[in-house]
């Protein structure tokens, strides 16, 4: 017995957005709290790092003055609530290292990382879909088994190795794209490709198994009974029905993509959030680390909202469901 009723879809979307934004506040507070706790738990002291190079004599008065200036002499709860209050106003403080506002540092680094992650996501979805669809359409056994292995390979190859191979081949051997620090589209290609492979693997596997299962659905038989070609059956009938789990998973890979950006940006010598995190962690630059964590958290919340909104366009059955108990 089902009481699901369908109807006005724009109403469903606005309700969805409203509810999500409310819960986003709670999630964000959680994220910055964890970030705050973690930076203070990491062994090491920012003041020591800033003042001296290991073991050298440090003037206690100077150290105390710096500690006071950075407000690190206050109690932890004090620091925490002061941090929350200013974060609520969008102010994450200034970097211990450079004295620049954290928001400006992030604003400078974010575009490079976001375009890299975005390109990787797009590329991953395209490659993954192509592998899955091709494996359903091909009659060749050899191609079929190659396409079945590719996703596993794509997911298990480490980024540093893929990056090295791609650089060796496309930059050094063929000279097609710049090796390091390139800007613009051409500089984006190799790092984006490196990062896209795990996403491509996930998408390909989920889609391929979904398509395989859809083969036995009645609506597929009906489409074939109308005389539809294999390609039409796969593209028009099966793909949209099986896309939903793949899209969910793609959304969740965004988090690991941003993590992978750290490695990839380092290898390819690109500026971005990855590099910002590495340098800040090394310097125990608390405000920057906390700021970046908040921004990443917000990004994840936004992505999962977008995924859910996309569902309402792809599947007409996604509606508010009323259940009585």
């Amino acid at each position: 017995m089902s009481w699901a009723r369908s109807g006005d879809r724009s109403g469903i979307r606005s309700t969805m957005v409203r509810r999500r934004l409310l819960s986003a506040v709670t999630v964000l507070i959680g994220v910055v709290t964890v970030a705050f706790a973690v930076v203070h738990l990491i062994p090491g002291d920012p003041v020591q790092t800033m003042l001296g190079t290991g073991g050298a004599f440090v003037d206690p008065a100077q150290e105390a003055a710096l500690r006071h200036e950075l407000r690190l002499d206050r109690s932890l709860p004090d620091q925490y609530f002061a941090f929350l209050a200013s974060a609520a106003r969008g102010d994450f403080g200034t970097s211990f290292q450079t004295g620049e506002p954290v928001t400006r540092l992030i604003a400078e680094a974010a575009p490079a990382s976001l375009s890299l992650a975005g390109a990787a996501l797009l590329l991953g979805a395209l490659i993954g879909t192509a592998i899955a669809v091709l494996s359903r359409l091909t009659d060749s056994r050899v191609l079929g088994s190659v396409l079945a292995v590719l996703p596993v390979l794509a997911m298990s190859l480490p980024a540093y190795w893929v990056a090295a191979v791609l650089l060796q081949f496309f930059s050094f051997r063929l000279g097609l794209v710049p090796a390091l620090g390139g800007t613009g589209i051409r500089g984006l290609i190799l790092p984006a490709l490196t990062m896209s492979l795990p996403t491509a693997g996930v998408v390909a596997q989920v889609l391929a198994s979904g398509l395989r299962a859809a083969e036995h659905e009645s609506y597929v038989l009906m489409a074939r009974a109308k005389g539809a070609t294999r390609a039409r059956v796969v593209w028009r009938h099966m793909l949209r029905n099986t896309a939903l789990p793949a899209i969910t998973l793609t959304g969740t890979t965004v988090g690991s993509l941003l993590g992978a950006a750290v490695v990839t940006e380092t290898i390819f010598g690109r500026p971005g959030l990855g590099r910002l995190i590495i340098t800040s962690l090394n310097a125990h630059d608390y405000p920057v680390i906390q700021g970046v964590a908040a921004v990443l958290g917000a990004t994840m919340i936004l992505i999962s909202l977008l995924v859910d909104l996309l569902f309402t366009y792809l599947d007409p059955r996604v509606v508010s469901t009323a259940v009585w108990r």
């Binding site: 659905e217 009645s218 609506y219 038989l221 009906m222 489409a223 074939r224 009974a225 109308k226 005389g227 539809a228 070609t229 028009r236 009938h237 949209r240 029905n241 792809l314 599947d315 007409p316 059955r317």
Partner: peptide, 24 residues
């Protein structure tokens, strides 16, 4: 056979609940 299907030989399947594509 495919060119005959739907054109000259049509099928009405058993269970209408699942024979239509839910997303079209």
């Amino acid at each position: 056979r495919r060119r005959l299907r739907g054109r000259h030989i049509a099928t009405i399947p058993q269970d209408p609940a699942v024979a239509l594509n839910p997303v079209l």
